[in-house]
Design a protein around this nucleic acid. Structure first.
Length: 552
RNA sequence: GGCCCCAUGGUCAAGAGGUUAAGACGAGACCCUCUCAAGGUCUAAUCCCGAGUUCGAUUCUCGGUGGGGUCACCA
């Protein structure tokens, strides 16, 4: 007769340490009362998801405001889907949002006393725990192939029975220890399953920091905890890691609620105290059919944080926007604090909405405008440079022509009581400011923009006269000059005047300003013309007027 | 389909057993104005449905309906 201990030894002959040894290796953290230990546990299967940014933001916030610890653990147990280098990329993206962990996985290195923080490097720990379960008779090897499982499922579905590997359908569960021992000796492939004592008809009460207490069916599935590749599944790794790393609050997406009974059961089987859980709502969007759905990596560009980074949205704005979703009282708070120092805001789970918000790019842009409007010209230069270096060579080239010139462009109507709010990202910067650069100006000239109802010779004469405008004078004097020139060419000096006597005039001063605007900017809409002229400088203003005059 | 979560304007939402049901983004209008971006003033727009409890329900309870999530050797 084979004992469960003998079976465990056969499966894991190399494992000699015990759970007690592990407990000694990873003692309780020495932290102040109320300190929360949180973690972000991404799997290296691609880019940083917007939803992950949301949860990790909350994780960091909670740890920070309780003087706790926020760490990163890389969950790379799915070797098939792993994408090389994505762990580092994830980290780099988090860094750009100022989400820097206190300990854990840092890409090229790891930091902290509770590591390793990469699951594939923790296999010894998992094996010790699984060996324990095996010895206790709480786990067993399963030799069913994926085909067997598929067949089982088909039969269950046809008979309308709850599908899965459980109770009477858990074939290998009833294998005797001797049989299992033989099969393993014969090198038959196997996985290890947890022997669930649960009953699907039993309801258990679970606690959630966001959802409160609710009841859910007990787990009765003999889930796989150890895969044939020698690595644990998520469920088991979660339980071991969050126990030994002493996570106090697990913050994760709502999609995990349904596996909570599994996790709770595993904690119980291991005789461990489970952490607190907070299942945060997922961020949604409306698809082509008008249905709400979770932001999808495959279908939605906004699902990847890189989408915002590549387009030059200020990272601060995304975080700020996400915080409005996270806590309903944040918006009012940040308005009161002039869109600054959001790290001082106190986050709480009780102010969290229970259902998933639709991603609102409009609101993100609103925050971005507010944030950028509060930057200095120099900060704008640095941000633009940082963005352009990574994502926009054309913008980089133009900025580098002359940093001071770029700053002056950025400074148009900036250092005033109510600054302009043109910019919400850097990705479309040149659409706004391209005309300030000679080369971009020259290739975009379009004389068809001029008002077709005004004779070309009149435009020409007006423009030649506008060369006299002296913008070294204050703006009001400059505008008086413009009015004079307008009158001289029979344009009314105000719109009101023009409306009263339309027949007497060719147009009004606004038409004259438009001529100049088109001449200098290649467009009908531009910031304050006086400022534009000051930035362009006398030589360039003259050059542009002359150039347009020859084309008319 | 089973189970779970959720339900106030287009979006994010506050709210209390009795309110003219906040506010923000967005939209529209007007003002300002050399255009734009702002700024100012204003407007439109919400309690999913049905029963029950109650003098009274958008609020509490139940049942529908709708939306979402989940049912892997993926996390």
């Amino acid at each position: 007769m084979i004992t469960s201990k003998q079976l465990a030894d056969l499966i894991f002959p190399e494992v000699t340490k015990t759970i007690d040894d592990l407990e000694k290796l990873f003692p309780s953290r020495n932290l102040p009362q109320g300190a929360e230990v949180t973690r972000f546990a991404p799997s290296p299967t691609g880019f940083l998801h917007t939803g992950s940014l949301f949860t990790s933001m909350i994780c960091q916030k909670l740890a920070k405001q309780t003087n706790g610890v926020f760490y990163i653990r890389l969950e790379d147990t799915d070797t098939k889907r792993e994408i090389q280098g994505s762990g580092e990329k994830l980290l780099d993206e988090m860094k750009q949002f100022n989400l820097i962990p206190n300990e854990g996985y840092f890409g090229s290195y790891q930091k902290g006393n509770y590591g390793p923080y990469i699951q594939s490097q923790r296999s010894e720990i998992y094996k010790i725990c699984i060996k324990y379960l095996l010895q206790q008779g709480l786990a067993y090897p399963c030799f069913c192939s994926s085909k067997d499982i598929e067949e089982l499922r088909t039969v269950q579905e046809a008979n309308k029975i709850l599908p899965g590997y459980y109770g009477p359908y858990a074939k290998c569960r009833s294998l005797s220890l001797d049989e299992a021992y033989e099969k393993i000796k014969n090198k038959e492939p196997f996985v290890i399953r947890f022997k669930s004592s649960g009953n699907h008809n039993n309801k258990i009460k679970v606690d959630d920091l966001i959802h409160g207490t609710f009841s859910i069916a007990e787990n009765d599935q003999d889930i796989v905890i150890y895969k044939s590749d020698g690595l644990p599944t998520y469920h088991f790794a979660h339980v071991c890691d969050d126990h030994f790393m002493h996570t106090t609050t697990v913050i994760r997406g709502e999609e995990w609620i349904s596996s909570l009974p599994i996790h709770l059961q595993l904690f119980k089987a291991m005789n461990w105290q489970p952490p607190k859980y907070a299942h945060v709502p997922v961020i949604m969007k409306v698809d082509e059919n008008g249905n709400k759905r979770k932001l999808s990596k495959r279908k939605d560009a906004e699902a990847a944080v890189s989408y915002f980074l590549d387009d030059g949205y200020p990272s601060e704005a995304l975080i700020m926007y996400l915080m409005t979703i996270a806590n309903s009282n944040f918006e009012e708070w940040i308005f009161e604090h002039d869109f600054k120092n959001m790290e001082e805001f106190e986050f709480s789970f009780s102010k969290m909405s229970l259902d998933g918000a639709l991603f609102d790019i409009n609101k993100l842009q609103f925050f971005a405008r507010e944030i950028l409007a509060r930057k200095t010209k120099h900060e704008m230069l640095l941000m633009a440079l940082d963005f352009a270096n990574k994502h926009d060579q054309n913008l980089l080239y133009h900025i580098n022509l002359n940093h001071e010139y770029f700053e002056e462009i950025m400074n148009i109507e900036r250092e005033v009581e109510k600054p302009r709010k043109d910019y919400y990202k850097f990705g479309n910067m040149l659409d706004y400011i391209g005309f300030f650069y000679h080369d971009l100006y020259d290739v975009n000239i379009d004389i068809n923009l001029f008002n077709q109802n005004i004779d070309k010779t009149i435009i020409k004469n007006v423009l030649l006269d506008l060369k006299k405008l002296d913008f070294s004078k204050p703006q009001n004097e400059w505008f008086e000059q413009m009015k004079e020139i307008a009158s001289k060419h029979n344009f009314a000096s105000s719109n009101k005047e023009y409306k009263q006597n339309k027949d007497m005039y060719v147009g009004q001063v606004g038409d004259v300003a438009e001529m100049l605007r088109i001449t200098l900017c290649n467009r009908k809409n531009a910031p304050n013309l006086y400022c534009v002229m000051v930035v362009l400088g006398k030589n360039e203003v003259m050059r542009r007027i002359d150039k347009i005059v020859t084309l008319l």
